[in-house]
Design a protein around this nucleic acid. Structure first.
Lengths: 161, 161
DNA sequence: ATACAACTTGGAGCCGACTCCAAGTCAAAC
DNA sequence: GTTTGACTTGGAGTCGGCTCCAAGTTGTAT
């Protein structure tokens, strides 16, 4: 079986990242310079698609493009989790993400409280809400949740154009 | 007990949102025009602080400012979850957030795989990773996680300045 | 009275992340 | 052979979200 190759258009389709954006990522060297066919057209293969998907996923977590660089390094086929520095970065990212999940959970709490109220019943709900947005340092937790698919941002970003 | 009032500086301290940004939010009417003292200085009270905290929390979930408006409406003391339209928006936001959590979980999965490898063992890990970024529509799940505090973005945004 | 701090305003500027454009190349289809 | 379509390039423009600035006001401390 020969390795299959993709055009930038196919890469865009598969990853949900626009052609322009893929070129942009190459321009800022978030992606390595793609191989070119004789006519200069970019060629992508499986692992390039994977890398773009990874960027897309990181993007959805709100990570700035610049912050992705070390992260993507850990993904490169070459030198992997051999470097303790990378491992530390990964761990720190993991923590950040867990904290972000907490923020999200606070919003879900907020929504659930709102939804649970047939009526506000002001005094009562105000109290609870105040607590919802207070710092919850004491509580530890955060057990793994399951995996579904992306889309929070896309719900907004796919609107334009 | 008289209601306590806060200056913009205190509001900023309590919410972690800069004075400039609070003024900016008022300018774009994400916050109602704050009351002024005789000298024109802004005055904030408990519920204003709460609203700013809510914005801050929504911001951490990556929600664009414009998307917050209907959300904040649901938070206003007046008309609450009486309007079915608002309820729908809340529910839809809740879904978005759950999806975002899924994205985050994918990244955590990715990190955990990386961390778990003493060595990459290429063939093997490539396989797993491909799966991690594929669509996981089948799996349902998502049980509530606990509440801690924010900070993913802050980890980056607090760097500047 | 004068200096300082804490605010006010409108507007300009900045940065990240695209997004679009014009001009050009190339290959296949008619 | 010329038109069509999928690409290439560099660079300009856009948009969201701040962030900074200058000029002005007020209140307190010396």
């Amino acid at each position: 079986m020969e390795e299959q190759m993709f055009t930038i258009k196919q890469a865009a389709e598969q990853t949900g990242i626009s052609e322009d954006t893929i070129r942009f990522y190459e321009k800022i060297m978030l992606l390595p310079r793609a191989e070119r066919k004789k006519n200069g057209h970019r060629v992508y293969r499986k692992e390039d698609i994977y890398r773009i998907k990874l960027i897309s996923c990181l993007k959805k977590t709100g990570m700035p493009l610049e912050a992705m660089r070390p992260f993507l390094a850990a993904s490169a086929d070459t030198a992997s989790t051999e470097y303790p520095e990378l491992v530390d970065q990964l761990k720190s990212h993991r923590e950040n993400i867990m904290n972000q999940v907490s923020s999200l959970q606070q919003i879900v709490d907020f929504i659930d409280i709102r939804l649970a109220e047939g009526r506000p019943q002001k005094e009562y709900s105000d109290q609870i809400q105040d607590e919802v947005l207070e710092e919850h340092k004491e509580k530890e937790i955060i057990k793994p949740i399951s995996v579904v698919e992306l889309s929070y941002f896309s719900a907004y970003t796919k609107m334009d154009k």
